[in-house]
């Protein structure tokens, strides 16, 4: 395995009964890359991501994440990655500070380290005024930014973001992407799904899944050339209905 490929996937498959949700997908992701993982509803993105982060056992195929095998070293994977789920991100009934402390604890950070991280994080996100408020009372966009920071509290090598900007307003969405750029700039690999096609343009490379299979994978520029269209939205429209 090349040391530069932090994710290596070959023939990865997931079946539920006789339904194949992820059908023999193969790809590699390099260190520091922003990798956009696109596809229509039900294409299998979340299912694939769950296998990569070690919380769902593949039916067949091979995959290593951060150098660890998803079959045999799922626990080590969980410690070296961050994950922001499509639905659940933070505890609504805990305050901002309590959430940070809680997740810091889960990742085994020392109390001192948690205190430091907490202060830095709250300042960077401009959450000083609401640090002791319940997360449930925050606007969605703020929650998502906090959630992203919390998913990186243990300085992971890779973060997996499942639709982090779904429903987020235009300004906050852009602030979120600035955070992604910043992380990638520091060498963190970002694996992200989105249904916003302007965001697909911000990725270094993009894959498009259709009915469990990866049907296209390249830089946004090359994909637009390949399908002879002006933007990623049209690339998606051409592919997604199979």
């Amino acid at each position: 395995m090349s040391i530069h490929n932090v994710i290596q996937v070959e023939g990865l498959t997931k079946k539920f009964g006789d339904f194949t949700a992820v059908n023999a997908i193969s790809f590699k992701v390099e260190k520091g890359e922003i990798f956009g993982f696109l596809g229509a509803n039900g294409a299998g993105k979340t299912t694939a991501m769950k296998m990569l982060i070690g919380i769902s056992i593949p039916s067949s195929g091979k995959a290593t994440v951060a150098g660890f095998d998803v079959f045999t070293h799922a626990e080590s994977i969980k410690k070296s990655i961050g994950y922001m789920s499509q639905k659940f991100a933070l505890y609504d009934d805990l305050t901002v500070k309590e959430n940070i402390t809680f997740f810091g604890g889960i990742y085994g950070l020392s109390r001192k380290r948690i205190r430091q991280k907490s202060a830095v994080l709250i300042e960077e996100l401009g959450l000083e005024k609401v640090a002791n408020k319940l997360v449930g009372a925050l606007p969605l966009g703020w929650k998502q930014k906090l959630s992203f920071s919390v998913s990186m509290i243990h300085d992971p090598k890779i973060v997996f973001l499942d639709e982090p900007t779904g429903g987020v307003d235009p300004i906050t969405r852009r602030q979120f992407w600035e955070m992604i750029y910043k992380a990638a700039n520091q060498g963190i690999t970002v694996f992200v799904t989105t249904h916003y096609m302007d965001e697909a343009e911000y990725c270094d490379r993009v894959s498009i899944m259709v009915n469990g299979k990866i049907e296209a994978l390249d830089t946004p520029k090359k994909l637009k050339e390949q399908f002879k269209v002006a933007n990623m939205n049209d690339v998606f429209l051409k592919l997604a209905r199979g």
Partner: peptide
């Protein structure tokens, strides 16, 4: 109320 949040581009169309 935000019916297409999380809906893919083709389906949104």
């Amino acid at each position: 109320d935000e019916p297409t949040t999380g809906v893919d581009p083709v389906s949104r169309k």
